[in-house]
Nucleic acid binder design. Structure first.
Lengths: 275, 275
DNA sequence: TCCTTTATATTACTCCGACATATTAGTTTG
DNA sequence: CAAACTAATATGTCGGAGTAATATAAAGGA
């Protein structure tokens, strides 16, 4: 099971407006899988609690399009029985989904999947769920576009506000990137460290949080890059250019260097996903 | 019972200038408000469920700095009794907070407030909690800075990709802004509609979601603007400039006009908050 | 002396069954 | 025909019992 249900055809996502208004095929209640089939038994993987596993399962099913906006989940009792968990665990999972804007529960009406516009797509968990299956190329493009907007601006701010400590952390991360390659976990961690150091140098909490989310999503896509072919180019020189500009306090150069960096990453990922 | 447990002295978050500045008083276990005082009875306001009210209460207390990172909440039983609610309701509230990255619950250790860096500060609810009390000026600055980065870029994209429907929505919103002023709810709604229309024209989901969050936060600050003095200038002409540029497909002009718009809003809000 | 292993106590986690409340849909009454 | 009322249904809330996990302390071995 778990097949992709054709997502959005590409165009209808924007601006709430319709969402619910699918002319045909009235929303149906879902979750009535019980029957004879052996219960899915989405039992928890180590570390994760039971309600967390349920939330992951349902969340992934929702963002992957298996449950569509407007659909209403079968009642708490029925669904919890179908999942073979207690009603409490199921309810706590639904609260999590509700907190992330994926569903809304009301008495008598039941629990319904909210329109895409209400989803907290920048929530780290939601992003993880979105990338746990086949990621939507259109959405990945949106993320990179956002990254291409935010990160160069962050580099500009960093060039203005960085101090010695920030620069030292960037240098350390760069050194780690040289020692390991992007093919290793340590190398990717160093890459994240570098970008985090740049973000931290902006002295802007909102930027840090936002790019943490984007960075997590981008980290997923780098897996795809690895999957399709060996890493295509040495990323260190481009990072060094960013560092040099920030260290020199050259605002324009920092923004430009970072823009180049993000563009290259997008190019790599796109060719990897489309190819 | 209920004595100090505090762990990390608070230094590990680094960066982000510890906003809520209370220097002293080591982390304590909290929730021991019971005693003689009449129970706070954070009973639900209409429409909001009980666990939602608890989550709101706790969330606001956390982001306002009343409970600090590293603090550990007194146990489920104790805290739920202190709040005079069942454990189920309390637990569901904690699940919500956990989903937003504010706390983490583990057996034996209890529920602890996570460092600021793990909070989903861009979550609409978290933002609402942050602005339910006295908003942190430094954080507001961060938000406006982010807005100053994202919205002009969004306007540029909108100038490239807008279609007739997008333009019509912007015109309608502008008309509504003219009829009502920013002093009325309808006027503020029209303002949001205009910005949402611009965002929708970018065809970028991530941008839409992000700016929805920021816009919600900005809406809170406009209340502060209203509070301090009558609205200082007529915002419609500036919005019209943005519209004209987008309608003309002039990328540079659109970005510049939007930059001006955000700068003015920041200026107004800053003077209102500082004055 | 230091590290590893085991035991234990505390805490969250899960489950269950019952009742309360809210909201919709149908029915009745004016 | 419309408005008020009643009933059905699903979520919301409750309290308690038992399980699983983990940090701390104790015991054992190197």
């Amino acid at each position: 099971m778990l097949k992709v249900v054709g997502k959005d055809g590409g165009g209808e996502v924007r601006s709430m407006s319709d969402s619910m208004t699918n002319g045909d095929a009235p929303p149906e209640t879902i979750g009535d899988m019980g029957s004879d089939e052996a219960a899915p038994k989405a039992r928890r993987g180590t570390g994760r609690r039971l309600h967390g596993a349920i939330a992951h399962k349902l969340g992934a099913a929702i963002v992957s399009g298996e449950y569509r906006p407007g659909d209403t989940l079968s009642g708490e009792v029925a669904f919890s029985e179908a999942l073979d968990v207690s009603r409490s665990a199921y309810r706590e999972a639904v609260q999590v989904l509700s907190a992330k804007g994926l569903v809304e529960s009301r008495p008598k009406t039941g629990t319904r999947v909210l329109p895409r516009s209400r989803w907290n797509l920048l929530d780290p968990d939601v992003l993880a769920w979105a990338f746990s299956g086949e990621p939507d190329i259109h959405f990945v493009r949106s993320l990179f576009e956002l990254r291409a907007i935010v990160e160069p601006a962050a580099a500009r701010l960093a060039a203005e506000r960085r101090n010695k400590t920030d620069l030292k952390e960037m240098r350390d991360a760069l050194g780690a990137m040289r020692r390991h390659t992007l093919a290793t976990d340590a190398g990717r961690a160093a890459d994240r460290d570098f970008h985090n150091a740049v973000l931290a140098a902006t002295r802007n909490d909102a930027l840090v949080v936002l790019t943490a989310s984007i960075g997590a999503a981008v980290a997923w896509t780098t897996q795809f890059k690895q999957r399709s072919r060996a890493l295509p180019r040495n990323p260190v020189p481009d990072h060094v250019k960013v560092y040099d500009a920030i260290a020199a306090g050259d605002v324009e150069a920092a923004g430009e260097a970072m823009r180049l960096l993000v563009d290259l990453a997008l190019e790599d990922t796109r060719s990897a996903m489309e190819g």
